[in-house]
Amino acid sequence: MKVLADGDGQDLIALERRSSSLRSAKSAASYAVLVLFTIISVGPALYIISPAFRDSKSLFSYPPQWLPSEFFLGNFQFLLTQTNYVRWAMNTLIFATGVTLIALVIDTLAGYAFARMQFPLKKTLFGLILATLMVPTAAVLAPTYLLVRFLDDWTFGLVGIDTFPGLILPMTVSPLGVFMMRQFIETLPPGLYEAARIDGASEWRIFTRIVLPLMKPAIVVLGIFVFMLQWANLLWPLVATTKDETRVLTVGISTLQGQFVTNWGVIAAATLMTLVPITVVFLFFQKWFVQASVAGALKQ
């Protein structure tokens, strides 16, 4: 770009200078837009800090208050003593972790089978599973609910409404996960798999000793993807739980919106308490998070 002929050097340098000042003005504008959207993205979540530390009265006071006049801790106190917030948080952890772990196990196993093993009807079966790739929870919500209620009787209460297995298992099925794992395993050099077979390893040993250690990145990405999806899940937990023993955060917080009176300070406090840990985790593993979300969409 900077190759200048001797003769018309002066003109070109002037042109270059003018266009560079134009360019810096443009980049300042684009910077401003990005900053604006950063504020829009982060601002609302930051603002929640203020109502979390104010009592209900000050929330609706006039003239409005922007910042707490005193550090009111009543909302947090209420949340920790009068509600089952801690229980909900634990349940969310159990639910999201449970779904993630089971999904990772069944998806990597099935992904391996589809990527590396030969069996009759493989293509048909994979096509069938792929066909359900996009089936939303909402569309099978009602029959799934019904099924889990029936399972209650059939499994003697092991899998049912208001049980963790009943809450977790239906969410573990994700054709997308199998697809992602299969794609990843197919990118591993087939020679490794063949070398291990020659070396006498069984499919199980190849899977655990050779394939699994090489799949770490894919497992982290899928794990974050599933965890994020389930930790935010409202619809299924709302349907599958009726008691605080199995209720998760999303459902619990939505029950804080009372039928008649809602204590908004408490809701703000609950939201804040929920966002802080996930934000910390996110900031530590941001690269993986970003990769997981984009991978989920792009790799389909």
């Binding site: 990005l34 959207f37 950063t38 993205s41 982060v42 609302p44 979540a45 603002y47 929640i48 109502p51 994020m228 930790w231 935010a232 899940n233 409202l234 955060l249 999303t250 917080i253 939505s254 908004w264 809701i267 703000a268 609950a270 939201t271 929920t274 966002l275 996930i278 934000t279 996110f282 900031l283 941001q286 998070f289 970003v290 979300s293």
Partner: peptide, 24 residues
């Protein structure tokens, strides 16, 4: 930096994003 900042709201479960929007 911008990537992380713009991504941030995605962490928030929609139900809680709803609560946050209430205050807006």
């Amino acid at each position: 930096f911008f990537k992380v900042a713009l991504y941030f709201p995605l962490l928030i479960p929609p139900i809680m994003a709803g609560m946050i929007f209430f205050f807006l």
